[in-house]
Amino acid sequence: MSEFHLTEDQQDCLQELINVAMGQASDQLARYLDTFVYLKVPSIESVDAKDLMNTLSQQKNTMAVVSQGFFGYEGIRGEALLVYQEEDSGRIADLLGYEPDELSQDEQLIDISSILTTTFLNVFARQIDNQMSYNAPKLLPSAKENLSEHLQQMPFSWDLALKVNINYQVTDYSFNCNMILLIPETAITNIKHVLDRILAEF
C-alpha cells in the first residue's frame, strides 16, 4: 500500500463525513430549487491517472463536462468535474428558476454545476473545520475528445488521485449528473492528516 492510499479507518471516516455533507447539501439544494434532490451514496476510490482517463473517455453520450477547482486551508485542494449526459439536461433553466431565453445552454450547465459543487464542498469543508475557495467553473470544449487531454494538462502533476463519485438526481426535472472530485497526491497526504486528527478526537 502506498503512502497515498487511505487506511480502512481513514476511508470509513471520509465516507462518513461525505455522507453527512451530502445529507445537508441535498437539504439546502432542495430548499433553493424547491424540489427533491437525491444524492446517491458515493464511491470513494484511489485511481491512477491512466485508469481515470480510460473510464472517463469510455463514458458514452457525455454531452458536457464542467470543471471547477477548489482550494482550502491545510493544502486541501482538487478539482470537481461535473459530467452530463445528453438526455439528462433538457430542463436545467426550469430547474434553476430561470426563463430559458435568459441564458444559453452552456451558461445553464455552468450555473447548475457551480451550485452543486460549491454547496456540497462548503458543507464538507465545515465538517473538517475548513473553508473553501473556488475557481470560476469552466465548460470543457467538446467533452469527448478533450477530457483526457484536459486531465493531462491539469495544473498539478499526479499519478494517483482520490476519486469521489457522487450522483445527483432531480426526478421532477429528469435531471441527472455525476460529480467527480479529484484530489491529487499531495492533497491526499493533507487529507489523511485531517482524517487522522478527526479520528484521534473521536
Binding site: 439546502q28 439544494l29 430548499r31 433553493y32 434553476l96 428558476g97 430561470y98 426563463e99 435568459e102 441564458l103 444559453s104 452552456d106 451558461e107 455552468i110 450555473d111 457551480s114 451550485i115 460549491t118 454547496t119 462548503n122 473556488y134 470560476a136 467553473p137 469552466k138 465548460l139
Partner: peptide, 27 residues
C-alpha cells in the same frame, strides 16, 4: 443588467451561502 436572471443568481448566493460566477465566455 438582466434583472430577473441576476436576482435569482443573487438569491442563490444569499440562500446557499456559496459564490457564483459569470464568465465573458458565456456573457
Amino acid at each position: 443588467l438582466p434583472e430577473r436572471w441576476l436576482s435569482r443568481k443573487f438569491s442563490s448566493v444569499f440562500q446557499l451561502n456559496t459564490p457564483s460566477f459569470c464568465s465573458w465566455e458565456q456573457r
